[in-house]
Design a protein around this nucleic acid. Sequence first.
DNA 1: TCGATTTGAGAAACCGGTTTCTCAAATGGA
DNA 2: TCCATTTGAGAAACCGGTTTCTCAAATCGA
Lengths: 335, 335
Amino acid sequence: MSSAVSGERVTIYDVAQAARVSTATASKALNDTGRVSLETRDRIKRVARELGFRPNSLARSLTRKRSFSVGLLTNDTYGRFTLPLMAGISEGLIDHGVSVFLCAIGDNPDLARIHVDAMLDKQVDGIIATGKRIDRPLPVDLTHLSVPVVYALTAGPSNGVTLVPDDRQGAGAAVRHLLAQGRRRIVHVTGPCEFDVVHERALACTQALAEAEAATEAKVLFGSWSEHWGHQAVEALWSGADKPDGIFCGNDQIARGVVDALRERGVSVPGDVSVVGFDNWEIVAKETRPPLTTVDMNLKELGRQAGLALMRLVNGEAVETGVWKLPCSLIVRSS
Amino acid sequence: MSSAVSGERVTIYDVAQAARVSTATASKALNDTGRVSLETRDRIKRVARELGFRPNSLARSLTRKRSFSVGLLTNDTYGRFTLPLMAGISEGLIDHGVSVFLCAIGDNPDLARIHVDAMLDKQVDGIIATGKRIDRPLPVDLTHLSVPVVYALTAGPSNGVTLVPDDRQGAGAAVRHLLAQGRRRIVHVTGPCEFDVVHERALACTQALAEAEAATEAKVLFGSWSEHWGHQAVEALWSGADKPDGIFCGNDQIARGVVDALRERGVSVPGDVSVVGFDNWEIVAKETRPPLTTVDMNLKELGRQAGLALMRLVNGEAVETGVWKLPCSLIVRSS
DNA sequence: TCGATTTGAGAAACCGGTTTCTCAAATGGA
DNA sequence: TCCATTTGAGAAACCGGTTTCTCAAATCGA
């Protein structure tokens, strides 16, 4: 416990001297490797503890050729997806003594290149690439790096490891929830059709409805990812005949717009119409009146898995390539 | 350009050999230090470029005792404040070749300790502490570390360097904007009174109103940081006499609630009442109908400054201690 | 009891750079 | 022309660890 405020850091040399052994023996004792008697080993460990010895990670990395740090490259400026992911990665890796360099590269290829080079110079053991769109790659090529790369929430090469939420399963759960509420006239109000996830989710809607024999094809309205579009969609739907009794929205902001618009029209949620969102962006979903039932992509868990997958690659273990789809969870609130 | 796909990394030894000099000379040439003839220097640099030499940052750090990496400790799980800050720090430091380790520690002191130790083992040059509340410290003591620490958006020790937005100036600008719109019956709807910033901003309101001789004291309603509170506040205000014609809100979510509630009551914004928010959380502010005029805390710039201040400390330069208040900007939209 | 094997520990090389110190050659001044 | 100074470059030590190799002492088997 002592350790004292000895200005300078305690090195393994100090420990060796205090324990009257060579640095070689000290190193072996502390790492539980090599031939050292139990007695000596314990003594060295005790001395190290007393001196408050903490090995210099840089020196260790130099010989071990493992820096115990990884890089996280992100595209996402708001941090809405990145921070939960980051938290998961960090949580999964801290047990391995691994720290995470975060680089916000925006959409700037030059900046991305600079950051990637900086990471490689710092000898990161691997890189996790993440973005805000699953169907778009980052503005930098990571395929010929000397370190393994894992892709999360962004497009990766087909022979790489890519982790994404299972949009289809999530959307299916949302629609089945609406069906379970007795809703039959279900509409999907979603984002721009340029997004792959939009199609995935629409497809899942159709499948879920078909399974329940509620409809042969889901009615889908494409728009933008905004609250404003939620309002517009309700206006369009309620100006026609055949008004829906269940609405599944492409994200929580659209759902928020939909719920607000319905309330303004005097339509009761969930009395007359049930609404389900997507993302479980708590700050939106919980503040909606009534609080929004929505799909959570379990980004933290996804981050954890991405981190662990990267570690396996770093350790040379086999990892199944391709796209891993991780399950989403339905968060049932009052809408 | 060649460099080839030579599997292994190019070391300074390779460069030295190719240029027919010693590693000592190579190092001096590449770093523009020591005694080397211009001719030799150029040749070595050219060879290094041709071979695609990139110095191993770990090895360099070991001798230089500078790792060119810093740690960012954060409390904020949503990342709403952290990511803009992070982007600013990163932007300010990448020119210095410095990378940032991000650690999300939540409110867990043990986790915080583990992360701090991990950073120190990795020989970070310094640490930036950030949180979601300016009047609360992180759950870990950073005062006796061997590396300099800068605090941003979180409470630091009085002899430390702390950067925060100038809430008073920002709030003053907001109120003066309302006054300039011809508003005189101004109310401040804000968060819980346990927050220091709440008082700072309230005080600034009073001052601004006093300067304009519009009132001797600002009317302030304390509540929570939610949209819901915005609704409640409007209900309370409109059920009494003396309805306001200008509302300055403690954050954009409250403002959002206020604007929605006013619209539901048929009160025109900005026709009858002007509303100003705080935070410029674009995803809320831009989606409000009408788009919200609000105060931006310039977090990215704050991050940049924090990073640069830390660098100065690392380089042993003098840095003024105490609380630095950085200016906020009023973002004028339609409310 | 004696040679063969195992054990414990240290010397030294190494990782990939930086830096100090040394020294021969080139230059300068008288 | 001769000595003092400057210049350019390399040898070697170093940063703080890890790892291989060596070797004397202890243990083992016959």
